[in-house]
């Protein structure tokens, strides 16, 4: 009898001790902890600064660009055929391009188009890919025979897309739709679909074998609810990281498509890929013309990659304290 009471007292004392430990502080969810860790990571910080600067420039570009990006204001001063170019000077900080347009203005306005393509293409790839992958993953996780068949059909389709190189898909789509900015968006976006689909499905499958899913089953939770409220939310981390990384790829691929001539044909709306394509012809005479857009693309892609990598690291459960 005394033994029993003693034990009860011990449990009470334990409850008291756990209560006192950190007062009545709210629990920190994983998401909040991840964000906190992200804020302390130098990698995330540098990525965020680059991306932030890029976003800022893209938004304010039309207001701060010193000249009209499409106007050949100094057309007579540049003679590409005679190898006469104009480098940086007081009124044109980045010099003039081969048609005598202000390079700085074109770079600034070009940032806007590159960002637009990157974001829209990534959103498109993410939405379509996550939907396909989510349906396939959910179908398998439900554990019925028809679910596995549905999954097989979707995934073989995805495999087919994956078997064709992304750029080839993009080029085919661009060839069908004709050169324009939306074409580039759709082409780059669709090329990302299989990656998102596979990633989400794989992540869902991994989660569906976890112990807490088993625990939920033992609790008597219905399968659809388990998929919706346990498997899916826990599978999204890697997909969100992938989306951040894809922004970098999308900007590069959009540049590649513009470079190949599938971008917006209107010379008045510059983008970095098209500028790179134009500059290629004068690579010997004026290599700096190619350098500006190339370096801009690299730095922007680097910014998104840093941010994505930092997010992945802070989401990685192995690095959690």
């Amino acid at each position: 009898m005394t033994l029993g009471t003693d034990r009860v007292n011990k449990v009470d004392r334990l409850a008291e001790l756990t209560a006192r430990r950190d007062g009545d502080a709210e629990g920190a969810s994983l998401l909040r902890e991840t964000f906190g860790r992200l804020r302390r990571s130098p990698m995330a910080l540098s990525g965020a600064v680059i991306v932030g600067a890029f976003l800022f420039v893209a938004v304010i570009a039309p207001f701060v660009a010193p000249y009209e990006p499409g106007a050949q204001l100094w057309g007579r001063e540049v003679m590409p055929n005679q190898n006469v170019f104009v480098g940086p000077r007081a009124e044109n900080w980045f010099g003039l391009d081969h048609l005598g347009r202000d390079q700085l203005s074109r770079m600034l306005v070009g940032a806007r188009n590159s960002l637009l393509v990157g974001v829209v293409a990534t959103l498109l790839g993410f939405t379509v890919g996550a939907m396909l992958g989510g349906v396939a993953g959910a179908a398998v996780s439900l554990g019925r025979a028809w679910g596995r068949r549905l999954d097989a059909v979707i995934m073989r389709f995805i495999d087919m897309m994956l078997a064709i190189p992304a750029l080839l898909i993009a080029v085919s789509i661009a060839a069908i739709l004709g050169p324009s900015l939306p074409t580039v968006m759709v082409a780059v976006g669709l090329a990302q679909v299989p990656i998102f689909a596979r990633l989400l499905r794989g992540s869902m499958l991994a989660q569906s074998h976890s112990d807490y899913v088993l625990a939920a089953t033992a609790l008597g939770v219905r399968r659809p609810r388990i998929v919706r409220s346990h498997i899916l939310p826990n599978s999204l981390g890697p997909v969100i990281v992938q989306a951040t990384l894809t922004l970098a790829t999308a900007i590069i691929e959009a540049a590649a498509l513009s470079y190949l001539g599938f971008g917006n044909p209107d010379p008045a709306t510059p983008d970095w890929g098209a500028m790179l394509a134009d500059a290629q012809r004068f690579l010997v005479g004026a290599p700096e013309l190619a350098m500006y857009p190339a370096v801009a693309i690299i730095i922007t892609a680097l910014g998104f990659t840093l941010l994505g990598e930092a997010m992945r690291e802070s989401l990685d459960p192995k690095l959690r304290k």
Binding site: G27, A218, L219, H230, N234
Partner: peptide, 27 residues
Amino acid sequence: QMVFQDPLGSLDPRQNVESILAEGLEV
């Protein structure tokens, strides 16, 4: 009911304690 071997792995990392315990009651 069942108590699992791995106490962390058998708890959904995204649920707080109240929602972990409430889930069984709800269903």
